[in-house]
Amino acid sequence: MSAKIVTITSGKGGVGKTTATANLGVALASTGASVVCIDADIGLRNLDVVMGLENRIVYDFVDVVEGRCKLRQAMIRDKRLEQLYLIPAAQTRDKTAVSPQDMIRLTDELRSEYDWILIDSPAGIERGFRNAIAPADIVLIITNPEVSAVRDADRIIGLIEAEEKGPGKLILNRVKPEMVRRGDMLGTEDILEILAIDLIGIVPEDEAVLVATNHGVPVASDTGSRAGRAFQNIARRLNGEEVPFESLDGRDGFFGRITRMMKAGGEG
């Protein structure tokens, strides 16, 4: 077994990195895969609350880096999924407590025993971002259909290519189909054209995300919500399955066009 390391990053803050990491962790682990989620947002720990594991933390990632505990001791097992783990970020330190080499060394230790390692990147383009992408095999760039978020995604895509971690794949999050339909929100096609990157998922704006986060149970835990299903589909695509892109706005032409664009752009 050799884990695939997937980093979820965005440039701009608050676009859904932590939400996506938790949900992809749940979705992948639900298919029977073993998954370790690492919160690389040191100083602003959040993946623990989104996964509902905040009460179980004893050690954190910086404790491992600085040798106060073994890697296994910092891994918290999920309440429902046997094969899902979280390594929490330190809350009282900052990004300089970890180096890109530390990230590579510690993820290498996990590689042989798990199927997936998901890394929740902090916002920004500084040390924390560099730490998060250092060990990545696949980088997922998440953005919202909004000018500043797309601009920052473009910057991140450039940096990822410069670090030879490219080309990366795009998750478009918080899409409001109704606004897209009336021409008041950038559509998937517009954003793919602007960013020239492959798409791996479209997640609608969905109140269920907030409700799920309130409970500490990611939406992907059940198929009842559109956002949950969207994250499950992304997990299947990561697994190499060909899953059609969901037509959020109920128009038939939409999915066909996106699929054609993907083919034309070449699968990476």
Binding site: E146, V147, V150, R182, G183, D184
Partner: peptide
């Protein structure tokens, strides 16, 4: 109102 078109061009 097509503000999305504006957004795209500005981007």
């Amino acid at each position: 109102s097509r503000s999305a078109k504006d957004a795209k061009e500005r981007l």
